[in-house]
Amino acid sequence: MSVAAPARTPLQQSIGTARPDTARARRHPSAGGTVVYVILTLLAIFAVGPIVLFFFNALKSTSDYATSSLGLPRTWLWSNFATAWTQANMGAGLLNSTLIVLGTVALTCVVASLAAYAMARLEIRGSSGFMTYLLIASSLPTQMFLVPLFYMWARAGLYDSRLGLVLIYTGLFSPFATLLLRSFMIGLPREMEEAARVDGANEWRVFSQVVLPNMLPGILTIALTTALSAYNEFLFAVTMIQTSGKMPLSTTFFSFQQGFTQNYPLISAAGFIMIAPMLILFLILQRRFISGLASSGMGGM
């Protein structure tokens, strides 16, 4: 369950020159190349077109939308964003989402990096069995947990609390994050740790002063993937948070869309406001995002 090479390697290669491609392209500047580009472009339109259309719809008036839901806006109603922002109460939603996401990310990173360190470096018994358990734990139907979790959380006073949601998210996302981080750690050199141990440092010092700084890129990766999952999650959010003032954006948007507010341009505007923060974060940090998710998909767990 580990990647032989550090998760970063393939992408560093991709950034560097890929020799066979260039060689090939020079030899055959052919029609085949054009066809490939055409297909790739069509796929790109398939991927991004709906989002662009969604953005256009967010700028339409309702009558404009009713006559053409697949075209350009006739007048660009930027005020829809402001209206959606207030009507759907997205300011509070964004604040709550931020708190919940940051809380989840912080806790998950702490929990996962400690456990990953133990699993990758400290020869603990039952480690491989535990990894199998984590793999299974992250493939269980979470709807099944709703009833018992609700019961336990209400007893503990964690129901209708953002902290309660953060704890659930940490529980749900940390197995995956741990596996990811463990495989990242296995790719790191051990010499510095050994040297520190020889110098008499205890495991905590080795971890906090030697390992942690080296782990930072891996931690940033799991922080991003966890943030994405926590930000987009809605089943537990809609179940565990009752007070509208505490609801994260996924729930705010869901209820705004489900309510009888059938003003599609406003729904689109609210939806666009919801995806904007992740879109921006992704575009800024995309290399880290992609490398993390890519290694998770390559069996980096």
């Binding site: 009833v147 609700f150 959380w153 209400a154 129901y159 509208s244 869901f254 489900q258």
Partner: peptide
Amino acid sequence: FTPKASNTIDRLIQTSLAAGA
């Protein structure tokens, strides 16, 4: 008063009742 969506209110009431709230 807390407003709820029509398609979630029953489930929310059930789960909260089951939880003693």
